[in-house]
Amino acid sequence: MSDDLRLRALAEVSPPDASEPEARVDLPEPIDDRSHSDVEALKDGAVMLLEAGNRVAALALLWSAVAIDPIDLGAHRRLAAMLANAGDVEGAANEYARYIDFVLPLGDVGRATNELQYGARMLGGHAALHEAAEKIATAVRALVPGIAASTPTLPAPHLLPKVPFRFCIHDDGGLHWMQLEGGTAELTPSAVRLVDRDDNVIETRKCIPLAPGQKGHARVPEGETPGVAWVVLSVSDDFVAALDTGKPMPYRFEAKVGDEWLVATVADTACRLGRRSPNVAVS
């Protein structure tokens, strides 16, 4: 059996052995029973999807779980382990740093330290973990009277909003076009860009506003609000092949709102003009 700590974290369904330092973490009770049950359902669903081979959907459920409860240890560690096992060490390290950022303002330096140690054991040295270590050191210094006054206060973390989009794929001979419609009244995008795994910007296009009541091309699911803007991007054969086979997208989407680039979430409408619909729908 493999001794890879990342695989052990994914398989963890009960509290670890008492000899492990992370087992001594004493998590607070969830805010309410509904949030707790939602998070547990998302974690269970992620396990089933992962066993079925749908890593993309499993990751989406774990992202939702940590959005509901940012300090749920099980959801956090499973998410970090899945990212690391998929080769996204940067994403895994950032997930450990995110968890520590949420724990430190609660005054729980011990839990933050345990998680830093656990993350370092899984990933080794990483810039995000070094930065987290500096934040923990600052929090420790703040515990000593006389030093705290000169120590900057840790800002309370906040989750950046994500800009929702729905998309269709159109074929035009040898080219593929991805039409996105989305945004909200509060998050009105002025542009969308395609970014690869090395943070290289592949393409940037300005959005075209949708007038109130104007019907877009993408089907709006019942109960959801129509988008406020649309844009068309060219995508590669590899990108379309990944969609059709349920593999992770080779790129990510970002939307510009005001002066800031935010993460854009994209939901597949399964609309494929000029080609047959794929067998697998990717969300």
Rank of each mutant, 00 (worst) to 15 (best):
L194H: 01
V257W: 03
A127G: 10
N114I: 11
V39M: 02
R205S: 05
H176G: 01
G258H: 10
K206I: 04
D17M: 10
D171E: 14
T265S: 07
M48I: 14
R8Y: 09
I169P: 00
Q179S: 09
Q214R: 10
A218I: 09
V235A: 00
S190H: 10
R276I: 11
R252I: 11
T138C: 09
R197E: 14
Q117V: 14
Q179H: 11
V66A: 01
L10G: 03
R77Y: 05
L62V: 03
D32R: 06
G119S: 04
L159S: 08
V39E: 01
D259Q: 13
G87S: 09
S19T: 15
L116W: 03
K247C: 10
P152E: 02
D32V: 05
A58R: 00
D3S: 14
P248N: 08
G125F: 09
H176I: 03
P70C: 13
A58Y: 00
A242W: 04
T265I: 08
A218K: 05
N94D: 11
A58N: 00
I100W: 00
L42V: 05
D32A: 07
L106H: 11
P189A: 08
D69M: 04
G107P: 02
E260N: 09
E20A: 13
D44C: 08
I31M: 06
A229T: 04
V89C: 12
N85I: 15
L243K: 00
F253L: 13
Q214Y: 05
V266D: 01
A80S: 07
A97Q: 11
A185P: 15
N279P: 04
P152W: 00
S37C: 08
R141L: 13
I169W: 02
P278V: 07
Q179W: 05
H76F: 10
K247W: 07
E12G: 07
G87A: 10
P15Q: 13
F239A: 01
L243H: 01
R6D: 14
N200E: 13
R197V: 12
V109Y: 01
V240Y: 02
R24E: 15
Y251G: 02
L187T: 07
D259A: 11
L106F: 09
D44S: 10
D38S: 13
